[in-house]
């Protein structure tokens, strides 16, 4: 009996030391995925409950953070993703690769033409731009830009092919840049202000 308790205690302590510290990061990403605090909280909580129940399955020494994100992503995709999977509103082929660069007054006297643009993009714009990304793109963009996961890690977390991760990230980046450029214009950015 003591042995069993010792095992249970060890498990709990391991979990508290290895898994729980990632809560902040999980919540951060959950917020961007669900777009509201209540759902984000529930999602993180569900992820930890599931992770604890499956803690035996976790390979100690491997990447606990990625493992937790995989569990959370899985729950998100199955239970939280917007039920109406609206097709892409934008025709991607119309957007240039690395959209913002094409909009900058490059070649002007300004040595850093992008600085003017950055000055016209506010925190709230970035938040809105991220939230308008379709779920599939938002997920990989957040995992990459915010959490710094590698292509391979994102592929493992989302159960997508490496190539799919790369192309979604690429298109997500384009969409995000296009969206942000529109905010910059709204905020008074003038393309040829050099």
């Amino acid at each position: 009996m003591a042995e069993q308790n010792a095992v249970a205690l060890k498990k709990r302590k391991e979990f508290e030391v290895q898994a729980l510290p990632h809560m902040d990061a999980l919540y951060r990403t959950a917020l961007r995925m669900t777009k509201n605090e209540k759902d984000a909280e529930d999602l993180v909580q569900e992820a930890f409950v599931k992770a604890y129940r499956f803690w035996d399955k976790f390979d100690t020494g491997t990447n606990c953070r990625a493992w937790l994100f995989k569990i959370m992503t899985n729950i998100f995709i199955n239970d939280y993703r917007s039920k109406s999977r609206s097709p892409m509103a934008v025709n991607m082929d119309d957007i240039d690769d690395n959209f913002l660069y094409g909009q900058l007054a490059v070649g002007s006297k300004e040595s850093n033409p992008e600085k003017d643009l950055f000055n016209k993009i506010f925190d709230d714009d970035v938040k809105k731009a991220i939230e308008t990304l379709p779920d599939d793109f938002r997920l990989v963009v957040v995992l990459s830009f915010l959490e710094g996961f590698s292509y391979q890690e994102i592929a493992d977390i989302t159960d997508l092919q490496l190539g799919t991760v790369k192309s979604r990230l690429h298109r997500g980046r384009k969409l995000l840049q296009k969206e942000l450029f529109e905010y910059a214009i709204k905020n008074g950015y003038v393309k040829d202000n050099a």
Partner: peptide, 29 residues
């Protein structure tokens, strides 16, 4: 972009909120 994505949401990550979440999770455990 990387920097903005981090800071644009920072306001919502209040520490007391995270602490109460941690307690809730401990309760579930």
């Amino acid at each position: 972009l990387n920097e903005k994505i981090k800071t644009s949401f920072a306001v919502e990550e209040k520490s007391d909120k995270l602490e109460s979440m941690r307690l809730d999770i401990m309760g579930h455990l």
